[in-house]
């Protein structure tokens, strides 16, 4: 990669990090579940007593108390400027420890993009940096772990190099052997094992999604039936729309029109299935046959309205 390309990638990374910091400080995602963690910080801010089980929140609370600032304001608008650049600093340190110098900006750019898409998917709040930069999770995952790994990775190659130097005579032979043993039973076994892990994870995820979908459908059906029902009445022959029956969430029945006396038996049977008690029946003046048949057959109707003027006739 040319120096010019590296420079462009560095600029791009810096712009992305700055944009993430500013957007996080001045906007907040709709996902607010992580804010519950701040309860401990608020407790420290209000009482001045440290919560031993939440050391990071205690620290935020004490800082807020020192500067007379609300923990919510501090976490949402001040901390992004400290935590997000610090976390990316830790990532740069880690990347430098195991990548060649010229590939560092490209690696960092991919980390930036992954963070943005992690933000969008909110898959694991509060571990996602851009959704929970104020949480202990973020501190451990995005700051302490990269730093610790970076230190380990910079120290360990030194040991490895020393060992390699002491056994310089046999190193070439070992390298040759490694090349020849690249495709051996052990490696294939590991690959197979990983394949099974991936396949099992995929099946597990798929199964969970199907279960969730099933639960959602069940709830939807229950919710629809709880909220009420609209039934289209297509008459005795069943080929023409004669009227509507509305079933309310509390079990009330409202009939709108529903045909002449030929449609009476079919309608009467249908209404009997819903309890046979109608709260309101809207009628046309010239089409009352079905209504008269139902009343004769024992269907009770509390209120009857006609369409011209909607006045009660019974």
């Amino acid at each position: 990669m040319s120096k010019h390309a590296q420079k462009i990638l560095w600029i791009l990374c810096i712009l992305l990090i700055a944009a993430q910091t500013v957007i996080t400080a001045f906007f907040t995602a709709g996902q607010t579940a992580g804010l519950q963690i701040l309860k401990n910080a608020t407790q420290v801010y209000e009482t001045g007593r440290i919560v031993i089980t939440a050391p990071l929140m205690s620290l935020w609370g004490l800082i807020c108390r020192l500067f007379h600032m609300s923990p919510v304001f501090f976490a949402l608008h001040i901390l992004p400027f400290i935590m997000i650049p610090a976390c990316y600093g830790a990532y740069i340190f880690l990347i430098r420890s195991f990548c060649e110098g010229k590939t560092v900006p490209l690696t960092l750019l991919i980390v930036c993009l992954l963070q943005i898409f992690g933000y969008q998917s909110d898959a694991f709040v509060p571990a996602t940096l851009l959704l929970g930069w104020y949480t202990g999770y973020a501190l451990v995952l995005h700051l302490l772990c990269p730093l610790l790994l970076g230190v380990l990775l910079t120290k360990l190659p030194v040991v490895a190099a020393k060992e390699v130097k002491s056994g310089e005579d046999t190193a070439d032979e070992e390298d040759e052997d490694m090349k020849h043993k690249y495709l051996n039973v052990r490696n294939l076994g590991i690959a197979l094992l990983l394949f099974f892990v991936i396949a099992l994870s995929a099946i597990f995820v798929l199964n969970r999604k199907i279960n969730n979908l099933h639960a959602a459908t069940e709830n939807l059906q229950k919710s629809i039936s709880d909220k009420g029902e609209l039934i289209e009445f297509t008459g005795a022959v069943g080929d023409d729309l004669k009227g509507y029956i509305l079933k309310g969430s509390q079990g009330s029945l409202t009939v709108i029109f529903c045909g002449d006396k030929n449609d009476g038996p079919a309608l009467c049977e249908l209404l009997s299935g819903y309890g046979g008690a109608v709260d309101s029946w809207y009628l046309r003046e010239d089409e009352q046959g079905a209504y008269e048949y139902c009343v004769k057959e024992g269907i009770t109707v509390e209120h009857v309205y006609t369409v011209n003027g909607m006045e009660e006739v019974l």
Partner: peptide, 30 residues
Amino acid sequence: FLVMKKEGSRIRPLLFVLSVWTAISAAFVT
């Protein structure tokens, strides 16, 4: 894992503690 094995590096166990972001980025670049 395969690339580091090919290079004969001795820091392979640390691979399994890389976070998702760094592992994906490092693998792509490597």
